[in-house]
Design a protein around this nucleic acid. Structure first.
Length: 494
RNA sequence: GGCCCGUUGGUCAAGCGGCCUAAGACACCGCCCUUUCACGGCGGUAACGCGGGUUCGAAUCCCGCACGGGUCACCA
């Protein structure tokens, strides 16, 4: 066999009717990984035959999401290649030719049934406890009958003629051999009355003409595969190999749907998750690495990936684990990058102005992110900590216990000494703050607890939180003094 | 409803007939670290859906049942 015959060609073929979902991203990823691993070709095309719901905007969004994740394609939309065009609506002429062949050979025929007629047939079958399907009313129309329908102005669809009594066996790389009987299938529509092919037809022509060697897609396509196989056979086309990967479920064990909250890649991008964390996480849904290691870059994934280790059972999307993985990558990321990521969320929180930032502001963001990094699962959470670090106002003590801390007899002297030291400090930074705090315990001969806790509550209203030597410099001299003053007067009034 | 797929701890999963008195990870709980919390370290609780076979031996193979899911569109 020549090299060219052996080259692996895989594809991701989303329908541009919405954002890229987590499940779609995983399908794309698995295809991409296999192509990378084997030096094959990864193609992205668009299945936009649903004119009602498809949009260029969605297509663009999906492509952007793939790029953001780092999933690159070397052939297809916006990239080009020898097998284009890569949008189904731009390939109509091609489908027409194949339709003609099927019509000629008798493997397909025109059907003039109206929606009402079909619906009535469906209901009747359901009432009899049978599989709702098309029974083949128009299978053998005479020319006269056809002419009469045409005269009525009916626009026909083209249906594929399902052979009787045939068994279709699919060799699936994930599921093994799966057998279907042709008898339960009705003749299905391959070309709609507006001349646009349906998915099951177009996908066959595309995969075939693009020389796809492996079709890796979601399990929801498994039941449709025998229909596609029949078309390959009728047309005498070479069939790709199949691999159907299991679905991703929500916490209730059902297929992830919009109602479960964040199901699109963009949702996570907006919340400030890192793309490498998402990739790592979804790779682990339905695929198990050979060793103990759980952290994989895209390159490492491509090295380690294989269909043999893809599991048959569906996986539940576990946000906890995503968060853990994301936190891991955040701790490794350069502070500059994290600061950029934090920026939009801090703006939204109203603590940073729009427009260009001063170098001091940039430094402040870096300091801030650094101070709270270990408590973050994803970047949008930076908003939850601003009250510690921003503003002249200190929140009321969070609890009775916190209020109690401020009732200690040493508190007022601790606070006024702190105010003195902060006011006179040459430079307020982490180091100098440590010195100040230590100095207070020394000067007043107090235990650490009697110093640190009241200061914490006086400055933040909270019993817990980030290190004081992070809070104080970031808060800034004025805010610290103002917060101290505020607490002092609260104590005085109590 | 017919057809198809699946079923190991709460979750992701290893396991491909003896190495299993079933690995690892997330979550949870406890302890340690930290003059707070978090991070980190150490430890713990927790699973082969049920019933039949096959076999000297089954989480692993076969059959049935149950449960979950997918599909049966002029959606993809």
């Amino acid at each position: 066999m020549r090299r060219i015959d052996m080259e692996l060609r895989v594809r991701f073929a989303p329908s541009p009717t919405g954002p890229l979902h987590i499940g779609g991203a995983r399908s794309a990823l698995f295809n991409y990984l296999l192509a990378q691993k084997t030096d094959g070709t990864f193609i992205v095309r668009s299945e936009d035959t649903d004119r009602e719901r498809s949009s260029r905007e969605s297509e663009h969004n999906i492509l952007e999401a793939l790029r953001w994740l780092g999933i690159q394609w070397n052939e297809g939309i916006e990239v080009g290649g020898e097998h284009g065009p890569y949008r189904q609506t731009e390939r109509l002429e091609l489908y027409r030719k194949y339709t003609e062949r099927l019509l000629q050979s008798g493997d397909a025929y025109h059907c003039y049934c109206s929606e009402e007629e079909l619906e009535a047939e469906r209901q009747a079958l359901i009432a009899q406890g049978e599989t709702p399907r098309y029974l083949g009313k128009c299978r053998n129309l005479t020319t006269g009958e056809r002419a009469r329908y045409e005269a009525e102005g009916r626009k026909p669809v083209v249906r594929f003629r399902i052979p009787e009594g045939e068994q279709i066996v699919i060799h699936d790389h994930v599921r093994g051999e799966v057998a279907f009987e042709s008898d339960g299938m009705g003749d299905f529509v391959i070309v709609k009355s507006d001349g646009i092919p349906t998915y099951n037809f177009a996908v066959v022509i595309d995969d075939s003409t693009m020389n796809i060697t492996q079709v890796i897609r979601g399990e929801e396509h498994l039941s449709n595969t025998p229909r596609q196989v029949l078309i390959y056979q009728a047309l005498g086309l070479k069939m790709p190999e199949f691999a159907h990967i299991s679905l991703i479920l929500n916490t209730e064990g059902r297929k992830m749907s919009k109602r479960d909250g964040d199901t699109a890649v963009i949702d996570y991008q907006k919340k400030g998750y890192l793309p490498e964390a998402i990739v790592n996480f979804i790779a682990l849904l339905g695929w198990a690495p050979p060793g103990e290691d759980e952290f994989f870059t895209l390159d490492k994934l491509a090295e380690a990936f294989s269909l043999e280790r893809v599991s048959k059972s569906p996986a539940v999307f576990d946000l906890n684990k995503l968060n853990w993985i994301n936190a891991h990558y955040m701790k490794q990321a350069p502070l500059e990058r994290l600061a950029d990521l934090a920026l939009p969320h801090l703006r939204e929180a109203g603590v940073l102005p729009e427009g260009e930032l001063s170098p001091e502001q940039r430094e402040w963001i870096k300091g801030y992110v650094h101070a709270i990094l270990e408590r973050l699962d994803y970047m949008a959470q930076v908003r939850e900590f601003v009250h510690y670090f921003v503003g002249a106002e200190v929140p009321e003590p969070e609890s009775a216990a916190a209020a109690d801390v401020l009732r200690g007899e040493q508190v007022l002297s601790v606070l006024s000494l702190l105010a003195d030291k902060v006011e006179t400090a040459k430079d307020l930074n982490g180091e100098s703050t440590k010195g100040i705090l230590k100095g207070i315990t020394k000067d007043l001969k107090l235990s650490g607890k009697l110093v640190y806790m009241p200061i914490r509550v006086a400055l933040t209203g909270q019993m817990h939180g980030p290190e004081l030597y992070d809070i104080i410099p970031l808060l800034g001299r004025e805010n610290v003094l103002s917060r101290i003053k505020q607490t002092q007067s609260r104590i005085g009034n109590a």
